[in-house]
Design a protein around this nucleic acid. Structure first.
Lengths: 191, 191
DNA sequence: ATCGACATACCGCGCGGTCGGTAGGCCGCT
DNA sequence: AGCGGCCTACCGACCGCGCGGTATGTCGAT
């Protein structure tokens, strides 16, 4: 096992329960029972239930941001970069379906300062994507009759909605869906 | 005033507060204070906090369903009907931004049976739209290389996401945004 | 001896919901 | 007109419980 399997067990149980029943409906007692530890152990590693929730956001945001940065850093034709980013975002969103469920549903349960922090980092993330799209617009690849803010919202809405309908047990694989949603998006924004 | 302004005042206050702070973070006491009534008055008209929440869902679902039914009943070319439905859905979603916020965020706070009821009615709603799209596919208007379920999710994701980014104070009017999102969707699904 | 890593019993508070009471309108009866 | 009875609409003090969080203790490793 790793150095502190307890903290990870708690995190896993928390994600599962928050996604299934919601943050407010989940008692700390339930989490520690599901994780097979005690309350004392949990409060030894986390200072509050709120921090537990924030941890989910922190990890997800960090991962997605660093992946997007990597892809952009690799460079290439704008259109190829945009496609690669879209596919990757959808794929990782599917890999983190449960985290996504919690993310979009329970952001308002965070303490005010942490809520601000999450908003700030999401904005950074969106802005990085905006730069890409606007470069594409400047190059004449993408339509300019619709403001880029709307185009961006149109894309992120798909990743937002994924936890609501996508099931890993369904017929579609992660890769296929990622390709389909990306294709739909690109088709709609090209001139 | 109407016959029972109390119930309406409470409903309005509840939507506002649930949207602003979340269902779990809103005490019944807060709601009645915001509505300018007492707890006794509220519990005279509503049997529980849960019923208050369900009422929001009930009204929103009823309105959207009946509007879609009306548009479909008017008949016409498939493509025109689809466009009209899309525009209307986006417009009414913007008109009900606060209700939408509550809707997508707090569905899991409903009691189990009411949650099922909401799921059932949402499915009905989606199915009605699916019939339209599939008719379009059969007529050769819309692409068939992507399953209709994905196309539908792709559209409803936009209405889902609206409360997250659209602001009535922003530059875009309701009508303009509705037209833009519809245009993006139609462009992406046409052959 | 000290300290990190837990265990467990416990506390206080805030909340949804309740319940006994009441003010006033409306009916029928005399 | 006056009166008794009843019903709806509301009031607000109160209750019980479940929850997040804590305080104190134990034990093994160093």
């Amino acid at each position: 096992m790793g150095p502190t399997s307890v903290a990870d067990d708690v995190r896993r149980a928390a994600v599962e329960l928050f996604a299934a029943q919601g943050y407010a409906n989940t008692a700390v007692q339930q989490i520690v029972e599901a994780a097979g530890v005690t309350k004392g152990a949990m409060y030894h590693y986390f200072e509050s239930k709120d921090e537990l929730l924030f941890g989910i956001y922190d990890r997800l945001l960090s991962m997605q941001k660093s992946r997007m940065d990597d892809i952009i850093a690799r460079g290439g034709q704008t259109d190829d970069v945009v496609r690669a980013v879209c596919v990757d975002v959808v794929e990782t969103s599917i890999d983190s379906l449960r985290e996504g469920t919690v993310f979009f549903r329970s952001a308002h349960m965070l303490s005010a300062p942490r809520q601000l922090e999450v908003t700030r980092r999401r904005r950074e993330y969106h802005d990085a994507f905006a730069v890409l799209l606007e470069r594409g617009q400047a190059e004449g690849l993408y339509r300019t009759d619709i403001p880029s803010a709307v185009l961006i919202a149109h894309f992120f809405s798909d990743t937002h909605y994924l936890p609501q309908w996508y099931s890993p047990d369904g017929p579609e694989t992660t890769t296929v869906v990622a390709g389909q949603l990306t294709e739909l998006f690109l088709r709609s924004i090209r001139v």
